[in-house]
Computed example of a mutant assay.
Amino acid sequence: MAMTKGAGSSPSAADLAPAAALFRGLSDPTRLAILQRLTEGEARVVDLIRVLGTAQSTVSAHLACLRECGLVTGRPEGRQMFYSLNRPELMDLLASAESLLAATGNQVVLCPVYGADATKKEAVTKR
């Protein structure tokens, strides 16, 4: 999958599908918060619950998604599971995203399709 333009033809929608799936997986604020916490080191579900202030079932569901995407791995120790980032490149991606957000002045928040207002409207519609 080539996301950046280089020598050769432009990538097709099919070529970009894996990247779109990756970014969809990263599009949830809870999953991003989990990943952000895991950049600091391993964490158990109970640790993530404490940091995020969300239910155990929510944290577990998001961890399952991240594990299935190959972004997070679990290491059993006794009856506990310690989660960590599976790919160090993810730290680079998150740092690049923070840099891009800072450079654009967080303009994406104003986007009518994906910004903060659109997210609020989507939440109201789902009720």
Rank of each mutant, 00 (worst) to 15 (best):
A2D: 13
A2S: 12
A2Y: 04
M3A: 13
T4P: 00
T4Y: 14
K5D: 06
K5G: 09
G6C: 07
G6E: 05
G6A: 15
A7D: 08
G8A: 04
G8S: 05
S9W: 09
S9L: 13
S10P: 03
P11M: 07
A13C: 07
A13W: 12
A14V: 06
L16W: 14
L16R: 13
P18E: 10
A19N: 05
A20P: 00
A20M: 13
A21H: 03
L22K: 01
R24G: 04
R24L: 15
G25D: 14
L26Y: 03
D28V: 06
R31V: 02
L32N: 02
I34F: 14
I34M: 08
I34R: 05
L35A: 09
Q36K: 12
Q36C: 04
Q36H: 13
R37H: 10
E40N: 04
E40T: 09
E40L: 15
G41Q: 02
G41D: 01
G41V: 02
A43E: 08
A43C: 10
R44H: 06
V45I: 14
V45L: 07
V45K: 12
V45Q: 12
D47G: 00
I49P: 00
I49D: 03
G53S: 10
Q56R: 15
T58H: 01
V59M: 08
V59D: 02
V59L: 09
S60T: 14
A61R: 12
L63E: 01
L63R: 01
A64M: 11
C65I: 11
C65G: 02
C65S: 11
L66G: 07
L66W: 06
L66A: 13
R67F: 09
R67V: 08
E68M: 04
E68A: 15
C69I: 01
C69H: 02
C69S: 06
L71Y: 04
T73S: 11
R75A: 03
R75Q: 15
P76W: 02
P76C: 03
E77P: 04
G78K: 10
G78D: 07
G78E: 12
Y83R: 01
L85C: 04
L85T: 01
L85E: 00
N86Q: 14
R87Y: 13
R87E: 11
R87T: 04
P88F: 07
P88D: 15
E89P: 01
E89T: 08
M91E: 13
D92H: 11
D92I: 06
A95W: 07
A95N: 06
A95L: 13
A97E: 11
A97M: 15
A97Q: 08
A97C: 07
A97R: 00
E98K: 09
E98I: 03
E98S: 13
E98F: 04
L100W: 12
L100Y: 15
L101H: 05
A102L: 14
A103K: 13
A103L: 05
A103C: 03
T104S: 14
G105W: 06
G105D: 03
N106W: 15
Q107V: 11
L110K: 01
G115R: 00
G115L: 01
A116P: 00
D117Y: 03
D117Q: 13
D117T: 08
D117I: 02
A118C: 08
K120T: 07
K120Q: 08
K121H: 10
E122S: 14
A123P: 04
A123Y: 11
A123H: 10
V124W: 11
R127K: 09
R127W: 14
